[in-house]
């Protein structure tokens, strides 16, 4: 589904990704861990199409299409979803109106009829249950005045509404208490249908107790330096990153 080859990228003159390779097949959950500054969020940003990130070398293909050629909106329409580490507050745009516009633009790109208000409400109601969303969260402005937990739940709610093929979760667990973490993880797990793939970027093994990955990768200095299964995450939790750094430097 997603193939990243030899990806090099920089932001503001600083090179962050240095030859990253990753292959994600349908239905797989890949966790990406790594110390601060290793390039985890840069990878998410490059995949979602943030303009301030410049790709210097390498390729990213998504279902056979050159992803790097697409605008952020075309990536979203093609089925990529980024759950933001810091969801943006947008005063004056209601959550419902925003999502209706987004869902209908994505549907239009697939040649589907846009939802009318009644159908949209029905779909929304069903998906709200996934993340235990309050009805009033949909009438409020996007993320405005939301708590950290509400913002992350709103990300997963949007994911459920947009039904992407590949979801990239950028430190979705940061700033969440145990209850919010459980709600968010339950939402994600409900969306695991054997076809949808996930890239879960996280600092902490804790999240991976809830969202159990098929693969765990360690990102260091802009490259994946070690890959394994969920046991690798446990080992990292126990031993930290120093032993991996030593292995790489050796």
């Amino acid at each position: 589904m997603l193939t990243i080859k030899n990806l090099h990228a920089r932001v503001e003159e600083k090179q962050i990704l240095n030859g990253l390779n990753l292959d994600v097949k349908p239905g797989e959950v890949h966790a990406i861990m790594g110390p601060n500054g290793s390039g985890k969020s840069t990878l998410a940003s490059v995949l979602a199409g943030r303009e301030e990130y410049e790709v210097l070398d390498g390729t990213v293909t998504f279902n056979g299409v050159d992803l790097l050629e697409l605008s952020p909106e075309d990536r979203a329409r093609a089925g990529i979803f980024l759950a933001f580490q810091y969801p943006v507050e947008i005063p004056g745009v209601s959550n419902a109106n925003f999502l209706k516009t987004a869902v209908n633009e994505v549907r239009k790109s697939k040649g589907l009829e846009p939802y009318d208000s009644k159908d949209f409400l029905a779909v929304m109601k069903e998906k709200m249950k996934l993340v235990e969303m309050d009805k009033q969260m949909t009438t409020r402005s996007v993320n405005e005045g939301f708590s950290g937990g509400e913002k992350k739940r709103n990300e997963i709610f949007q994911m459920a509404m947009l039904e992407p093929q590949l979801a990239i979760m950028d430190e979705t667990d940061s700033g969440l208490d145990i209850d919010a973490l459980r709600i968010v993880s339950n939402g994600v797990n409900a969306l695991r249908d054997g076809k949808r793939s996930f890239i879960v970027i996280t600092h902490y093994q804790r999240l991976l107790d809830y969202i159990v990955p098929d693969f765990v990768h360690v990102l260091y200095k802009g490259r994946i330096v070690k890959s394994g299964t969920k046991e690798l995450a446990l080992e990292l939790e126990e031993k930290g990153y120093d032993w991996i750094k030593e292995e790489v430097e050796a």
Binding site: G49, E51, S71, E73, R75, P87, I90, A102
Partner: peptide, 23 residues
């Protein structure tokens, strides 16, 4: 940031700008 957020959800750039200005 808001513009990118809207575009990352599939809303075209022009629509996203309009939506933000209307808000």
């Amino acid at each position: 940031e808001a513009l990118f957020y809207l575009r990352a959800r599939g809303i075209g750039e022009k629509s996203a700008r309009t939506l933000l200005n209307i808000a």
